[in-house]
Each structure stands twice: as C-alpha cells, then as structure tokens.
Design a protein around this nucleic acid. Structure first.
Length: 876
RNA sequence: GCCCGGGUGGCGGAAUUGGUAGACGCGCUAGCCUCAGGAGCUAGUGAGGGCAACCUCGUGCUGGUUCGAAUCCAGUCCCGGGCACCA
C-alpha cells in the first residue's frame, strides 16, 4: 500500500496525546524556549486554511527546538470573550457561554487534526472563572496604582451595537466590526492610564527583535513630540490666558493669529458681541459634522474670528483669535499659535482668510510655507540662531519670564476600558452610596456574570448587566453597606493582555502565576501572529506587562522578545457584474462579464451605456474552468473574473482545512503552507499546488518503505554513510535545512529536502545513516510520517526528542568546483577545477577553455579577475 | 499627501558579501507503464535564432557606478499595506 496519511496521522496524534509527549515542565538544567501563537477568537465559522499558517510555523520551530535540546513551552488557548457570540445571543437567545463552548470544540478539533505539538494541559479559556479571577485581580492592581479611573469622557457610542468603542475600534467614523455609524457622546467610563507609560513603551521598543514597520506603527501611535507650552494673554480680559502647544517655539515671532478648537472652554468667554452669533453657529456645525466629513475635506479650511485678540508674549503684538475645526480639542491644549509662513495648515488657513504671513526662518527654500529647520530672522533675541539653538533659547526665555515652558505631548490617549456589553469580564468594584468606589475584596473574586436570558442593552444607554437587578444590588462584604456593582464589562483586549503569563502556570489558584514559573519561562522567545494586532493587542499587553514589572511580578520589561507576522493566505474568488445596484432582485437584470465594465470613480459602470453595475461573487463550486478561463457553471457564456484576495465567506473563496486534511493529510497541508513562500509574505492557495508536496512525501515514503512486502516493513538499508556523494549530500542538506530553520526560511528548507529525496539514491542504494538524518530533518515539518518512518527504522521512542543531526564540516567543501568563465562579463564557458586550486591555476584553466579562446580571437587579455570558487572574468 | 513593503518565466517563488538569473514546486509538452487515470516513472520547459556547437535578448521603466548589477546610486511608473489636519 502506498503512503496513507489517513491511517498514520490519527495514530500518532493519539500516541502523543496518551503519552503526554509535549508536556512541558520546568527544568533548570535545560535552556527554555517559549514559542507562542496569538491565540484565536473561536468564531462560529471554524478555521479556514489561512488561520493555521502561523501555527504551523511555530510548531515546526517548537519541534525543531526540542530536537536541539531546548525545553519548549508551546501552549494554545482561546480568547473567548467577544462581540460575535453576544450578537448571536441577542439574535437567538443562546447563551454566549454555550456558543463559545461549541466554537472552542470545533476549533480545537480542527487544530488538533494538524498534529501540533501543543501542551494541551495548559489550555486557557479567557472566559473561564478561574482565569477571569486573575484578570480582575490585575485590574485591581491597576486601580490601586491609580492607573484605572472613571471619567466622564466623550466616547464613541455606536447605537447599532449598543456600546462605546475605543478610538482604535472606530475607522472613518464607523465601527471596525460591522461598519455601523458611531457618534460622540459624553459618558462615565473606565479609563486606563496608558499615557503614564508612553515614554517607556516608546523607549523599550528599541531592544525588541520585531519587524521595523510594526515598531514604527507603535511609535507613530504613541506620537511623542517635544515642544513648548506658551501662554498668550487675552487682550482686554484681565488674567485670562490661552495656552498653546507648539513644536516650533522658535517661530513665535511669526505668529500672526491664534486658533482655538471649537470646543475650547474659553470660546464663549472671549467672543465679542459682534461675533457671538457666527461663532455659536460654527460651534454648533462643528459638533454635528461627522468625523468622516471632517476628514473628507481636510484640505478646505473653515473657521470664524472670535473678535478677541491675544498678546504675543515675545513682542507684545496683538493677534486675532479665531476658532477652526482644524485644531483638535483632544491634542495638546486645544489651541495653537498660527505661524502661516512655516506650517502648511496655518498657511492654507491664512491664505483662505487673508491673514498676514510673516517669514521668520531663512534657508529652507524660498517657497512658503517652509517647515524645515533653518536660521531665525526678524525674531528678536533669537535672530541669527539655527532652529535647534533658537528653540532652546526661546524656551529658556519663556521659562524665565513665566510665559511658558518646554514640554512633551503624545498622540496616545488614555485607554477607554469599559464596554456596555454582557460577554466580558465584570469590573471587580463596588459603587457605594456616597459615590465612592472600592475594590471587591480579593477573597470574593471572581465576580462572575449574572445569568440572563435577554442579552440586549436594557434601554437607551443602559447596559445588559442592568437587567440583572438583583446582581447589580449587593452589599460590601467588609462593611455590610449596600453597594452597586459596575454596569460595564471589560473590552475583549483584557484577557489577551496577560494570557502569555498565565500559560507559564495555568492552573495556579493562589496567584496569577508563580514567581518560579515566570522566572523560568518568560519572556516569550518567539511570538507569531497577524499584523492586524500591530498597535492594539501588542501595545496593550506591553503596557500591562510593564505595570506588572513595576509590581515586581515579572522580571523582564518586555513580554515578547521576537515577533513575526505571518502573511495571509489568499484565495481565488470569481465575479461578474449586474445592474441590480439596489439589490431588489428584479427579473430583468442585465449581467456583464468583467470585460464589459470599467472602473469609474468609486464604482464600476458598464462600458456600453455607462450604467452603474455591482460585483457578484460566485462560489467556487459554481465556477467551471475551460481553456484557461473561468465561466459560470449555470449561466452559459458568462465569463468570470478571477480575483486573488483575502479569504472570506462573502467571497466564497474559503478553503476548509478539514477537507484538505481528509484528502491529502495534515503533513501535506503543513508542508504546503510552509512551501508557498516566505512566512511573512501573503501567498495564494491553489488546489493543485498541494499535489507537489504530497508527491514529495510519497517519494520519501517509497524511499524508506517496502510497499510490496507484507506489513510494509522499512527497507533493508545498507549500514554506514554510503558513497562520498551521498555523505556530501547528507551534510549539505543538514547544514542547509538547519540554517534555513534558524532564519525561518521554511520554503527553501523544504526545497532542500526535496532535492535530497530526488538525488540521494540516484547512483547507490540509500544508506541507513542518510535515512536516519533525513527522517529527523523531515520531522518538524511532517511529524506524522516522520514518526512512522522512524518506527520502521527500528525505533521505539518518539522522534520528537531525537537529537538533531549535525553536518560534518569536512564534507561541506567539495573536491572540485565548477567555475563560470566570462569574457567581458558574458558567460562563455565552465571549467571544473580542484576546490583548492590557486588563482593562477584557475586562470590557466579558464584561458585554456576552447570557447574562451575563440572569444579572445588571439588578443591578450587586459585583465583577468578570479573570484575564488565562483568565476573568472577575462577582460579584453 | 506622508511613511513602510514589493515588482524576477504561464503561476508560487530561489539566488551568502555585487560574481553562472530562474533552485524547488505547480502548470504545460513528449515518452514509458497501464483496461483506465485528475495515479506513477523518465525527459524537456524564460524568449528568439540555429541541424548543431552555439549566438542574441532578458529581473517594471530610464540613466549611472563597476571587469561584472535582480542585488549599489539617482530618477520614474505600477501594486499592496499603514498613517492621515497631532500644531
């Protein structure tokens, strides 16, 4: 019988499960390696082939590290709180706990079928009360340190979802999930003081082995900028000052007007009677204007003069005060000094409203606005100074005069940490009647969710928890006084902020994790997940980790030493177009192939009469391919356009791993995903492509197994290491695969294994030592077949801990090398020379080559360049 | 608009440091095997020319540096992602 993964794979999976092969225990005598996947949210749809790509990569490395003697921690769990289960509960009444449990079962079955070497005894579920307890416990520590506080803040309220959202969850004025409109409302909310850690979050990025783009995104998100606060007196208002933030205090002499954000507190106070009406109208309009509209015409500046004037502290000049929505209330002080000559936005505004423009920096180009550094001019005490020195001097002067000071601001805001939802961690706090807030005593943790049968918000601005009236009303166990529970729950990010710490000691009931386990296993050596978490999860968990560091609970400043973002797996989807733009399914719909339409503006229109059309996606099952083109199986003559894009249900291009495993086996699936290309790049899935790696495994199988003999024994292999060629092939394969694994070049490692199988038994039978080395090299990638072959080679122990082979350095250098010979840079011949031949010998051999002589045409070379082991270039 | 990635055969992708472009795989072609094959095996496969040995062209485009450029430099076009009035 040929290689049959269906027979082999379940057998080894239960073998590993039963023996606890991948159970990890603390062992100070061995070096540890903690390799972690970003744990998934178990959605109802199950996995598609894109999800496991990162898991396969980490599993290959985990298995490889074990074979190299590392004590490997490789856990998996579930980020199981979250909106979809709750939305489903609202629609169907099914408790999110039930949905979540069912989804976890599906995910776990699918993940296990791929043969990952997780230590399942460490499985975590963030919704488990035993986990929630410690999430709440950490929140309590944040609260004690003043890092969690309640504040009345304008929040992103999403009426459709019935909740507020974090800034990060709002994109272009719409919710990230579902794309529902979001409005700004003031509400009392829990906030986490992540801004207190802004500098450390920024600085410590330096030491991390993370992709540069991700680090940069975090830096930009934190958005540190150095500058100064400057106070301008408001003319004719005794003691009233406007404080502005600027990164260019050196341009203070060029300030020709000021701008307040429409929401600025001073606006009503300083507006003159003549301007009152216009200002009120503008403020009102700005309030109504959606985020989206503001962004859309960011280039058109609008604003209104307040009629008031401010006094520039450096020269006593009176400058008009305007309000405009290009100044944001939430950044800096919500007010700016406008220097139109040296700021693009101020320049646009000044041009639009005819305000004066005064140049105070020279040497940055003639065209205004010029925003670069130069030399200050017409600037009193800083005239003639270069920008950096001018900044220093003017800040010193402002400080000595009490008119301002040097300061730093951040784009990063405090983290809005509460949600008006049911399916999340309750806050472990009590609201007492006197309005004070205290923590639920530690002995009372966890605070568990009340049972509900209706999960909708309880009313306009009321939360689902408020339906549980008895649960909400409680008593403070310490004083016996009546108390109200918090009506909010934590956001989904909470559980994932520290799960990597729980994995080191997941069943601890006395503390979140033991000091011993944390000291041994942390930090995470390799963390693999999607780039979509670049700022959110990764910034939040770094923040929590630093708080725990300050509490002495963890011993490293940073949780994740090395980070890798796996690229997506894309699928082919197919589409045509029709003119039923309104989706009303009328009968006379006209259909178009992609060849009959063109893009116009934001949409697509028919080429013949220009009517708008809409794309229709055709599930793969209804696509017929013929002479290299795709056709609709049920609508004859309708040619479909193939589009390679992210897999998603709506596109009908999702490939289910269950089907792939059933047809080709888990080992082929693992190998294929790793063979597709570099791990961090996206790559399209094709059904034919997997046949290549499947064939490779079959060949490997036949190389080692006698399929015709009864019981399919391993072949009787000659003892020893074989011919010199075979020994050399083993050595170069071992070295190559090892180097590739070190650099996570899985695709080229697999290519080298393919070459090995192709060539090793070409001229002589496969020797036993070569077979042993090969099976070990294969094991991290295709563990099931490797175990099976390992057993057939006579081993009783799992290959999981077999020592990784080492290459004999002596075999890595060939006896003879083939050298390319160029004449004037063009390749004309090849010569074989001994690898230790000196340059003169190589040169002689090259010049003696027939084709080279022909191209020399009897001339004497001007120069001959010899690159050792590579080539010879003869220059005429 | 700004900041990152990336453009290599029909396709996915290889190519230590500037040194034989196209490893490996898919697909395709031919042959073998077969009752049959969406199975297996062998060979071929960047384009063009030539019976052949070989020759010419070729890594988005235009220049440059170099004995030699996919690789370095300058400019430019296209694709993907991130940020987007942050003073």
């Amino acid at each position: 019988m040929p290689y049959d993964p269906k027979r082999i794979e379940p057998r080894w999976q239960s073998h590993w499960r039963e023996r606890g092969t991948f159970r990890a225990e603390i062992d100070p005598s061995r070096p540890k390696y903690y390799v972690l996947d970003m744990f998934p949210y178990p959605s109802g749809a199950g996995l598609h082939v894109g999800h496991p790509k990162g898991y396969i990569a980490t599993d290959v490395l985990a298995r490889w590290k074990r074979m190299r003697g590392f004590n490997v921690l490789h856990p998996m769990g579930w980020d199981a709180f979250g909106l979809p289960a709750e939305q489903y509960a609202i629609e169907t009444g099914t408790h999110p706990r039930v949905t979540t449990r069912r989804n976890i079962e599906t995910f776990k079955r699918q993940i296990e079928s791929l043969g990952f070497s997780y230590d399942w005894s460490r499985e975590i579920d963030t919704t488990d009360p035993g986990y929630v307890r410690w999430t709440q416990w950490i929140f309590a520590r944040l609260f004690e340190r003043g890092l969690a506080y309640e504040a009345e803040v304008p929040v992103n309220w999403c009426p459709a979802l019935g909740t507020v959202l974090a800034n990060e969850e709002v994109i272009d004025g719409k919710s990230e999930r579902g794309g529902h409109p979001v409005v700004r409302l003031p509400m009392k909310q829990w906030m986490l003081r992540i801004t207190a850690y802004a500098d450390r979050l920024l600085e410590d990025l330096g030491e991390l082995d993370w992709p540069e783009p991700i680090k940069k995104m975090q830096r930009d998100w934190i958005g540190r900028s150095e500058g100064a606060r400057v106070r301008f007196a408001v003319a004719d208002h005794d003691g009233v000052e406007i404080e502005v933030f600027t990164t260019r205090p050196d341009t203070l002499f060029g300030a020709t007007y000021m701008v307040l954000a429409p929401e600025h507190a001073l606006v009503p106070r300083i507006t003159t009677a003549a301007q009152r009406e216009a200002v009120a109208a503008y403020v009102e309009a700005a309030k109504r204007r959606s985020e989206r509209a503001r962004i859309a015409d960011a280039k058109t500046k609008s604003g209104v003069a307040t009629g008031a004037f401010a006094v520039n502290p450096v020269n006593g000049e009176r400058v008009p005060i305007w309000i405009a929505d290009y100044v944001l209330a939430g950044y800096g002080t919500g007010a700016i000094m406008a220097v139109p000559a040296h700021d693009e936005r101020d320049f646009e505004f000044a041009t639009a409203f005819g305000l004066p423009i005064r140049k105070v920096v020279e040497g940055t180009g003639q065209e205004l606005p010029s925003t670069g550094d130069g030399v200050s001019v017409d600037s009193g005490l800083i005239s003639g100074l270069p920008t950096s020195e001018a900044k220093r001097r003017i800040v010193a002067w402002l400080e000595s005069e009490g008119r301002g000071e040097g300061t730093v601001t951040y784009k990063l805001r405090d983290w809005l940490f509460s949600r008006q939802r049911y399916w999340g961690e309750p806050f472990p706090v009590l609201h007492l009647e006197d309005g004070s807030v205290k923590l639920v005593p530690e002995s009372e943790l966890p605070v568990t969710l009340p049972e509900l049968d209706d999960f909708r918000p309880a009313g306009e601005r009321e939360t689902p928890l408020e339906r549980a009236r008895e649960w909400m009303q409680t008593v403070d166990a310490e004083t016996g006084r009546p108390a109200r529970r918090d009506r909010n729950t934590m956001p989904q990010w909470a559980g994932s902020c520290w799960y990597f710490l729980r994995f080191v000691d997941p069943r601890n009931e006395r503390e979140p994790f033991s000091r011993e386990a944390e000291r041994y296993w942390m930090p995470v050596d390799l963390y693999v997940g999607g780039a979509e978490h670049a700022v959110l999860h990764l910034l939040y968990s770094r923040f929590w980790h630093k708080v725990l560091y300050d509490l002495g609970l963890v011993h490293t400043k940073e949780p994740f030493r090395k980070l890798v973002n796996q690229g997506m797996i894309l699928g082919a989807s197919y589409r045509y177009f029709d003119d039923d733009v309104a989706d009303d399914g009328r009968a006379d719909v006209r259909r178009y192939s992609f060849r009959e339409v063109r893009a116009e503006g934001d949409g697509t229109v028919a080429m013949d009469d220009g009517r708008p059309v809409k794309a229709r996606w055709v599930p793969a099952a209804q696509v017929r391919s013929e002479d290299g083109r795709a056709w609709h199986a049920e609508l004859p003559g309708l040619e479909l356009e193939e589009v390679i894009e992210k897999m998603s249900k709506s596109r009908g291009n999702v490939v289910n791993p269950d089907e792939v495993v059933a047809e080709h086996g888990a080992d082929s699936m693992r190998l294929y995903e790793m063979f597709l290309g570099p791990i961090d790049k996206e790559a399209p899935w094709t059904t034919e492509g997997i046949l290549g790696v499947s064939r490779f495994l079959q060949r490997a199988w036949r190389l080692l197994v006698d399929e015709d003999a009864p019981g399919e024994p391993g072949r009787a292999l000659p003892a020893g290491a074989g011919t010199p060629e075979q020994r050399r092939l083993v050595a170069t394969t071992v070295q190559g695969v090892t180097d590739d694994l070190e650099a996570m070049r899985f695709n080229t490692a697999i290519a080298k294994l393919m070459v090995f199988v192709r060539d090793v038994a070409k001229d002589a039978p496969l020797p036993r030592e070569a077979a042993l080395a090969f099976v070990k090299l294969l094991a991290p990638f295709a563990p099931h077949i490797a175990e099976e072959l390992w057993e057939k080679l006579g081993h009783r122990e799992s290959i999981a801990y077999a020592p990784w082979p080492e290459a004999d350095p002596a075999l890595l250098v060939a006896d003879t090398v083939t050298i390319a010979v160029q004449v004037n840079g063009k390749r004309r011949a090849e010569v074989a020379v001994p690898s230790d031949a000196d340059d003169d010998a190589v040169r002689a051999a090259a010049l003696a080559s027939e084709n080279v002589r022909r191209h020399l045409e009897g001339k004497t070379p001007r120069k001959v360049i010899v690159v050792k082991g590579r080539l010879v270039n003869v220059v005429l």
